[in-house]
Computed example of a mutant assay.
Amino acid sequence: MNTYYNKVKEYLLNLEFNIVQEDTAEELFVVENPDGGIANLIIDCEDPILIIEGLLFELTEENPEVYKSLLKKNREIVHGAFVLDESGKKIIFRDTLQLENLDQNELEATLNSLELLLSEFSEEIISYSKS
């Protein structure tokens, strides 16, 4: 097991995130923080980077106005961004961090950014998920 994996686990526990699932072979976690609105967030140690991804919603059809709005919102997000999966239907929050010099503050900043995004943009996310 990679030392980065253990370090990331320690940071998550220090930040009081619930580890819902853990796969030591794949070196990934599924975490939640219900108070911050975060559920089923995947944190994957893929040396040399840490990948943080969470499904926000799925579109039933292509909607250029939704894409445009999300791209505009990306400019305001402090850490991370909205991205599409390979199908072009799933909207995901994603951020990547360097594992080699990762510290707890850096991981916390990304997680706080997601929490802030979910709290400030929740009405839009809910309306987009219905389209």
Rank of each mutant, 00 (worst) to 15 (best):
A39K: 12
L71E: 08
A81Q: 15
E62R: 12
E46C: 13
P48C: 04
Q21V: 09
V83W: 03
S87L: 06
L59C: 02
D85F: 01
V78D: 13
E76D: 14
L55D: 08
I49E: 12
D35W: 04
G88D: 02
G54D: 06
K72E: 15
A39M: 09
P64G: 05
D85H: 02
G88M: 01
F29Q: 03
E26S: 11
I52C: 05
K9A: 12
I52D: 03
L15Q: 07
K72S: 13
T24M: 10
A39Y: 15
E58A: 15
N63C: 09
E46P: 05
F57W: 08
P64R: 07
S69C: 11
H79I: 15
R75I: 12
L70E: 00
I43Y: 00
P48Y: 07
L84V: 01
N63T: 11
E16L: 12
I49P: 06
E10K: 13
I42R: 13
K73H: 09
D23I: 05
V83C: 07
F17R: 03
Q21N: 15
E58P: 07
L56N: 00
L59A: 01
K90F: 00
Y11S: 02
T60E: 15
L13H: 08
I52S: 04
Y67T: 09
F57M: 08
G37D: 02
E10W: 10
K72I: 13
L13V: 14
I52T: 05
L71Y: 13
N74P: 05
I49Y: 11
I52G: 04
P34Y: 04
N63Y: 06
Y11N: 02
E76G: 09
C45Y: 02
G36I: 02
F17D: 03
Y67Q: 10
D85A: 02
V78M: 14
K73M: 12
D23V: 06
E86S: 12
K72Y: 14
E32P: 09
I38M: 00
F82W: 04
Y67R: 09
V78Q: 14
N18Q: 12
F57A: 08
F82V: 05
E10A: 09
L50C: 02
L70W: 00
E16S: 15
E62T: 09
A25Q: 14
F29H: 04
L12K: 03
T24W: 03
G54L: 07
N40V: 05
E65A: 13
I77N: 02
Y11T: 01
E27Q: 11
D47T: 14
N18A: 11
C45K: 02
E16Y: 14
N14H: 04
D23A: 07
G88S: 02
L41A: 14
E46I: 13
T24E: 14
K68Y: 15
L84D: 01
E62D: 13
E58W: 07
K73N: 08
L59H: 01
K90T: 03
L41G: 09
L13C: 06
F17Q: 03
E76L: 10
V20L: 11
L56C: 00
N40I: 05
V30A: 05
I51D: 10
E53L: 08
